[in-house]
Amino acid sequence: MRNAFGEPQTMLLLGGTSDIGLAIVEALLTPAARAVVLACRDVEAGRAAGQHLQRPGLEVDVVELQAEQPLTHAALMAQVSERHGDLDVIVMAVGALADTATIAGDPAMAAMLFAANATGPVALSVAAASRLRHQGHGRLVVLSSVAGERVRASLAVYGGAKAGLDATVRALDDDLVGTGASVLVVRPGFVRTRMTAGLPDAPFATTPDAVARATVAALRQGRRVVWVPGVLRYVFTVLRHLPTPVWRRIAARA
């Protein structure tokens, strides 16, 4: 249960090696926290990632996650709840990045990338929301991206998948009204992480820690959507309404 300060006791990170996800979990760690569960494809990598979260009184548990196998998701929630009790915050940080050039017209690769950023994350979000609804409390944090806000040619599949995820989980949040559970959608711009290593910085580039700080503040304020950095909200209000030829020119340059 969260305490009077909104501090969680238990957290589940889906995508347990995500730089942003780990930064959010770490920013939410207080003396009230007693368990963090990292759900990862690669359990060994999860153990390594969890090392720096260790502190007295906190249990860091690593479980296997098969994001692309929706049939396993409800069981995962049940298993983690059984072991650690109610889940106060679930962070959905599963995703993968590849640009249009890398996909190079390969339909199988496009489908996999779309599934990695939409199908799997949507299934996990539905499983998580269902668990929180049953509990009668809890927050689901979903990592979306500004790439889904107006999808550009160079990130067509990634951006399109994030757009689908973003829209779906916001509707999930509407469905959760009155259940004690809710969803926070996090829309970062370009974040310098392992996932984006080697790519040139986009305008308004940010860091995992900045995303984490903004997420913690948004959770405290009970917000439903948070942009990082905050100015992107206004930037995209403009970008969203640009005529297509103008948008194409800007998107090609950024």
Partner: peptide, 16 residues
């Protein structure tokens, strides 16, 4: 389900 909190109005949860 109704959202209920204590007199201090700190985090609410839903119960029947």
């Amino acid at each position: 389900m109704a959202l209920l909190s204590g007199w201090g109005r700190t985090p609410a949860s839903a119960g029947d």
